[in-house]
């Protein structure tokens, strides 16, 4: 459904991505991992069409850049890392923005229903009529996710969608994303910092280090003590538990514990 072949991206002052390739099939949940500055956000922006990398990104059999923006928006929903803190509209209206690719001026009943369904999936019904600017940071992040779900795309590209959420909501959101992948065959790509979350929910993981793919495969193969030490500069203890492998950070390599 989405393939990247040997893509690289440079910002004016530094090279961020170097020859990254990946592919995503429908129903897969791909976790993009790596330390701060490894290129996760840049990679996701390239995949979402927000940046134009060298190399090739293919969406649904066509080069991404040749897909008209309106059509691309029906195939792929993108949740940027930074969600606006203020929007002069209600939560429901903020979610309804995700229906833009299907709308001309007046939302049709099915648009309103899709927005409401997305809100309900994230448990935001109570907030629907509140002003967006008045809700908490975690709630705003869930609104951004609901907006992406309302888009009813076949692919979700999300930059740290759980970063502002507490434990319970992290688990809820990850469960929801896996359910979307399983039930609707949605492809999901997300950048995450929490390795345990990735290990538990992702069907595949991609580990970036200085803009290159260090490892790619099943989370168990990627999240090894040696690879994490290389990518994050951290010694971890990996313990097999009833809920799968768990990673416990021990100390920064070369630093003080």
């Amino acid at each position: 459904m989405l393939t990247a072949r040997n893509i690289s991206y440079d910002y004016p002052d530094r090279q961020v991505l170097r020859g990254v390739s990946l592919s995503l099939a429908p129903g897969e949940v791909l976790a993009v991992l790596g330390q701060n500055g490894a290129g996760k956000s840049t990679l996701l922006r390239c995949l979402a069409g927000a940046l134009k990398p060298t190399g090739q990104v293919v969406l649904d059999g066509r080069p991404l850049q040749s897909v008209p923006p309106g059509e691309r928006a029906r195939l792929l929903a993108f949740v940027p890392q930074h969600v606006p803190t203020r929007l002069p509209m209600t939560v429901f209206e903020a979610v309804l923005l995700g229906r833009r690719p299907y709308l001309s001026w007046r939302p049709r009943p099915q648009d309103l229903e899709a927005a409401w369904e997305a809100l309900s999936l994230l448990g935001l019904e109570e907030l629907a009529q509140r002003e967006f600017s008045e809700i908490s940071g975690g709630q705003r992040q869930k609104v951004a996710l609901a907006r992406a779900l309302a888009q009813e795309s076949r692919l979700l590209v999300m930059d740290e969608p759980t970063s502002s959420l507490d434990l319970r909501h992290q688990l809820e959101v990850m469960t929801l994303l896996c359910a979307q992948a399983e039930e609707r065959d949605t492809g999901v790509i997300l950048a995450v910092h929490d390795l345990n979350l990735a290990a538990r929910y992702a069907s595949r993981a991609l580990l970036l280090c200085s803009g290159r793919v260090l490892a790619e495969g099943a989370p168990d193969e990627v999240l090894t003590e040696a690879l994490i030490r290389e990518a994050y500069g951290v010694d971890v203890l990996r313990v097999q538990t009833g809920a799968g492998a768990m990673l416990f950070p021990l100390s920064a390599v070369g630093g003080r514990a």
């Binding site: 928006a73 606006p84 509209m89 903020a94 995700g98």
Partner: peptide
Amino acid sequence: NLLLAGDEMAASLGVN
């Protein structure tokens, strides 16, 4: 409306 939500989000929803 989308512009208010941020350039990146607006662009991802098909706005030039």
